[in-house]
Simulated scan of single mutants.
Amino acid sequence: MAFHPHLPAKGYSIVAKTLGASMWFWVFYKAKQEGPVVLGLQHPWDGHGHGHGHGHGSEGGH
C-alpha cells in the first residue's frame, strides 16, 4: 500500500506563493532598514541618516 497525497487546488497554490513572496519582500525590506543595527554595525540610537527638521537652535525659548 503506497502513500499518494492529493495535490492542492490551484487557488491554494496561488495564495501560498503570493503570501510567501510577500513575506520575503517584507524580510528584505526590514533587512535593508535595520540590517546594520541587527548585525551590530550601528547603534540603534545613532542617527538614521535623515534630518527631522526640528531646528534645535531656533525654537524661540523652548
Rank of each mutant, 00 (worst) to 15 (best):
K10F: 14
G49V: 02
L41W: 15
L7S: 12
H54L: 03
A2E: 12
H52E: 13
H6F: 03
M1Y: 05
L7N: 09
P5K: 01
A9E: 12
E34F: 15
I14E: 09
V38T: 06
A9M: 07
Q42W: 00
G57R: 09
L19S: 05
A9K: 11
G55R: 04
A9C: 08
V15S: 08
P36K: 01
W45L: 07
F25D: 01
H50C: 02
P44G: 01
M1F: 02
Q33V: 13
P36W: 00
P8L: 09
H4K: 12
A2W: 06
K10Y: 11
I14W: 10
V15G: 02
S13W: 08
G20F: 02
A31V: 07
G53T: 03
K30Y: 09
V15Y: 10
K32Y: 15
P8R: 05
S22C: 13
F28C: 10
W24L: 15
H50K: 11
K32Q: 07
S22Y: 11
T18H: 01
M23K: 12
Y12S: 08
K10N: 07
K10D: 13
H43T: 07
V27N: 05
P5E: 06
P44S: 04
G61T: 04
T18E: 11
G40K: 01
H52T: 06
F25Q: 02
E34V: 06
G20I: 01
V37M: 09
A16P: 08
V27E: 06
A2P: 15
W24A: 06
W26D: 04
H62K: 13
E34G: 00
K10M: 14
H4R: 10
S58N: 14
M1C: 01
G55T: 01
S58P: 00
A21G: 15
F3V: 06
W45D: 15
M23D: 00
P36D: 10
P44N: 03
T18L: 14
T18A: 13
L39F: 08
K17D: 05
D46V: 09
P8N: 06
